[in-house]
Design a binder for these strands. Structure first.
Lengths: 209, 209
DNA sequence: GCATTATTTGAGGATGGACTCAAATTCGTC
DNA sequence: GACGAATTTGAGTCCATCCTCAAATAATGC
């Protein structure tokens, strides 16, 4: 009844000992690093094993194929997103739009190292759209909820539209920070300013009556 | 002295007849379509030839290898960008920040079908950074120039930072429009609004003294 | 029409990377 | 320390995809 027995290939087992669990961690970490760097297709199974200090056979003991590695990574990353966005609303109460704007920006900056390879995986695996949608849905719902706590008069649908925009802004900032190519030196700061200008201009009319 | 003789492999020639030039166009168009859909790595040379209605041998007559196809596409796309951004300043004079914001947004929407595979290629070929930088540099310079025409008091460096932010906003919108997943229905419109709020708030202090 | 040159064709070579497996090793437990 | 079970190992198989090339065909110029 483990995640493998239901539909996985016969050749691949859950780790049952501490060493195995540790190895799975190392393998996934290596895979995430490499896929974030080079992309899904360009990352080879041999490289993943090598970076994890393992041999190719160990990798295939725990993952039936390359796709399973990707799936495991996506699943973990989405769990992280769900956690973070679910807890967002708690922190959003009693904040000014400017402060909320900064918190949202910082959230994704903080999140980035924990979901390094997610964007590479999303692009590569264009099948499995339902998973992508689930991730986006949780993010947008979480942000929209925070927005409506900050600006109670905000319409539900509009809150989701604004959330979608803010989410993309956050992704852009993540992209700027991730690579050492911040386009221009002041761009990240400028992006934060844009986000504040936008949220302030958009939320103020709806604040507390 | 053609682009091939200088450093290319011996096996690959410039087209010398109308039929050959036509074939090259079809091959590049097919390659651009496929790489935009599936990504660089996932696109095979056989697929490119097939979609162009050609055989694999014809593809290799004009391109020594897959990398050369990518290079040719990038080169063409960058030429398009350079043209468009160079002509941007002409249209920017005498515009309000709001109008400029909309023109910038529309520019990238218009541009998108002409540089379909550029983002896929940029991600796949992380070597050749200088080319990526050249593309970005032209875009930022063009936008910054337009901004300073609209708001003459604007500092050079700040104009470039703002341009970098606007460029990324444009890319986000392109992403929203490209796939049939506009995140939420109102998101594209909301993104336009954000861009106007941002540019208005940022440029007004610098307008005509 | 004939010679020359450009283009097309597609079978096949070479390579790299996904994946297998049986034997060796380590770990946990009694 | 002995037994079974989990894990490690890495050489080897398979196959998809990149790329070659020599022969066939089409176009051009004279």
């Amino acid at each position: 009844m483990d995640s493998n027995s239901s539909r996985g290939k016969r050749t691949s087992l859950q780790p049952l000992r501490a060493a195995g669990r540790q190895r799975v961690e190392e393998l996934l970490e290596a895979a995430s690093d490499l896929m974030a760097e080079r992309g899904y297709e360009a990352t080879t199974m041999a490289e993943i094993a090598a970076r994890a200090g393992a041999k190719i056979g160990s990798l295939y003991r725990f993952f039936p194929n390359k796709e399973a590695v990707a799936d495991a990574l996506v699943q973990r990353h989405i769990a992280v997103l769900e956690d973070e966005y679910a807890s967002l609303a708690k922190r959003a109460a009693t904040l000014s739009p400017d402060a909320l704007a900064d918190i949202l920006i910082e959230l994704l900056v903080t999140l980035h190292p924990r979901v390094k390879s997610l964007s590479a995986l999303m692009e590569a695996r264009t099948d499995k759209i339902e998973i992508r949608e689930r991730a986006r849905g949780h993010a947008i719902a979480g942000i929209a909820a925070a927005l409506r706590i900050c600006a109670p008069g905000l319409d539900e649908a509009l809150a989701r539209d604004i959330a979608a925009v803010v989410l993309n802004t956050m992704k852009v900032l993540r992209g700027m920070i991730a690579k050492d190519a911040p386009t221009t030196p002041g761009a990240p700061g400028e992006l934060r300013r844009m986000n504040r200008l936008y949220l302030a201009g958009r939320l103020v009319p709806f604040r507390n009556i």
